[in-house]
Amino acid sequence: MNREKRFGIWSLIRSQWLLLFAISLYLWAFAAAPQRAWHALQTGGTLFASVLLLIAAVFGLVGLLQVWISRDLIVRLLGREGGIKGLLLAALCGTLLIGPAYLIFPLLMSLHRQGARWAVIVIVLSSYAVKLQMLPIEIEFLGWPFSLGRSLLTVLLAIPAGLLIEAMMPKTPARGTWDAERGNL
C-alpha cells in the first residue's frame, strides 16, 4: 500500500513537472512576445498532429507486447538463466519493457534476491535506453543511421557495463546456485 502511494507521488511529479514547466514557459513567452509564442504553439501543434497517427500505432504494439509477453514471464526467464544466455536475455528484456525505469527497481531487486546476477540488473537498466517498439518514432525524428547506430551501440555496451558493475559490487551470493551460474560464463 505504502509502495503504491509512493509510486503515485513519483509518477505524479514526473508527469507534471514537464507540463508545468512548459506552461510556465509559454506564459512567459506570451507576456514577452505574444506573436512568437503563438507561432511556437502552432509549430509544436503541427508537429504533434503529424506524428499522432504513428504514436497511436506504436501504442497498439505496446499493448500487444505488454499483454502477450507478460512481466511474470520476463521475471521467470531472467531469474533462471545465469550464463551468457541470461545476459543476452536481459538486454532483450530491457529494450522491450515499458514504463519509467524506477518503476521496475523493486522488481529487479526481488529478482536479485532470488538469485539473478547484478550484471543482469544493470544490463536491463542500461538497455532500457532502447525501445524496440518505439524505433519507428525514433527513426521518424532522428533518421535511420542515427537511430539504428545508437540502439545497436546501447545494447552492445550494456553487457560490458553490467559485468563491470558486477565486478565492483561486494560478492554476496544470494543462493547456492549463484556461484554455479557464475562458473558457467
Binding site: L18, F21, A22, L25, A40
Partner: peptide, 9 residues
C-alpha cells in the same frame, strides 16, 4: 503535449 509545446518554443 508538454514535449511538443517545448519543441515549438
Amino acid at each position: 503535449v508538454a514535449i511538443f509545446g517545448l519543441v515549438g518554443l
